[in-house]
């Protein structure tokens, strides 16, 4: 069948959502369908927030099936619209109190929030089925819009290349260097390691200079910046463990990639979707998110590689059932 995947576009920005959409289109093609990705630019500031939803309402889509992914692409109109929700406009919902949200408590903000909630609900209600990328996203949808979604999990990028390897002398933290990913916790924790374990952080972002400065006095921290896919895979494969402590993550490819590489994940109790995968003491260690507890967890695994391997194996078992053909089947049936 002809399948159109719809998603938002922020020109000059490329991240997990873009990879996710492209992988979905590829998965449809692999299953024998014709598939195209249709994206429209979106503006996040409140004054222009409603422009893109209205644009989507007027986009003619001729296809047998439309898969809408993130805000505001689910405003597309189609008799067979299936939503696989990555996220809504979080600045109006769960992240309303964050520094980057421009929704305040003034009357105009509140009126916009009411309008957006109402429109979101109506557009999502039109879908013949609603899936979400994780339970966290489904819970938000229930809390903020009174709608039910079914979590539909998928494998992360590079999953076919990731494999178990030796347990080296470093913990790996691949992440965008942004406040909500809390990379500073890893840097601060490293200064408290009792073992000789190093921390290797890969990624770029707006906190790069701040973290370079923070890490300058801590020799055990290595900041790689951007890394190629080849290097990313090797860093996963040879790590002792992966440290990933984001704030209320939607899904978190890093966790799944760590599990494909047979590595335990050290995370925080408020890391959101990560906790759907990391079970404390089974597939990783759940801390309170403080540098002290993260350091303790790293030292524990450094002193007991067998425990790290046992947790890593359990994590690998946990992701064994994830595959794209199942995702395609769920999205195209019913």
């Amino acid at each position: 069948m002809d399948v159109v995947v719809c998603g938002a576009q922020v020109p000059f920005v490329r991240g997990g959502a873009e990879l996710h959409m492209e992988n979905l289109v590829a998965a449809f093609a692999e299953a024998g369908h014709r598939s195209e990705l249709v994206r429209l630019p979106v503006a996040w500031e409140r004054g222009r927030l409603f422009d893109a939803p209205l644009a989507w309402r007027s986009v003619p889509i001729d296809a047998d099936l439309v898969i809408a992914t993130n805000f505001p692409s689910y405003f597309v109109r189609h008799p067979r619209k299936v939503v696989w929700l990555f996220h809504q406009h979080r600045g109006a919902y769960d992240a309303v109190d964050s520094s980057w949200s421009d929704f305040e408590l003034d009357d105009v903000s509140l009126a916009d929030q009411a309008r957006l909630s109402d429109w979101d609900t109506r557009a999502l209600e039109e879908a013949t089925r609603i899936f979400s990328t994780s339970q966290v996203v489904a819970d938000r949808l229930a809390r903020f819009n009174g709608l039910q979604a079914t979590p539909l999990y998928h494998p992360p990028p590079l999953h076919k290349r990731l494999r178990p390897g030796p347990f080296g002398d470093y913990v790996f933290c691949p992440t965008r260097l942004e406040a909500n990913k809390r990379p500073g916790v890893v840097v601060r924790a490293t200064s408290k390691f009792h073992s000789s374990t190093r921390s290797i952080i890969a990624g770029r972002g707006s906190m790069e200079l701040e973290l370079d400065s923070l890490a300058s006095g801590i020799p055990a921290v290595e900041m790689l910046g951007f890394v190629s896919d080849d290097e990313l895979v090797e860093r996963f494969v040879n790590a002792l463990a992966v440290v990933y402590v984001p704030a209320d993550e939607d899904y978190g490819y890093v966790t799944l990639q760590a599990f494909y590489a047979g590595k335990p994940v050290i995370t925080a109790q408020d890391s959101g979707g990560v906790l759907e995968w990391v079970e404390d003491g089974v597939t990783g260690i759940v801390t309170d998110g403080s540098p002290e507890e993260v350091a303790d967890a790293v030292d524990r695994l450094a002193s007991d590689p067998a425990l790290a391997k046992k947790m890593g194996d359990a994590g690998r078992d946990r992701v064994r059932s994830l595959d794209w053909p199942t995702v395609v089947e769920r999205l195209t049936t019913g």
Partner: peptide
């Protein structure tokens, strides 16, 4: 009448 969700209502009460 624009319907208000529980979350938006909570924001109005805070306001």
């Amino acid at each position: 009448t624009v319907p208000l969700t529980p979350f938006v209502r909570s924001r109005w009460r805070a306001r």
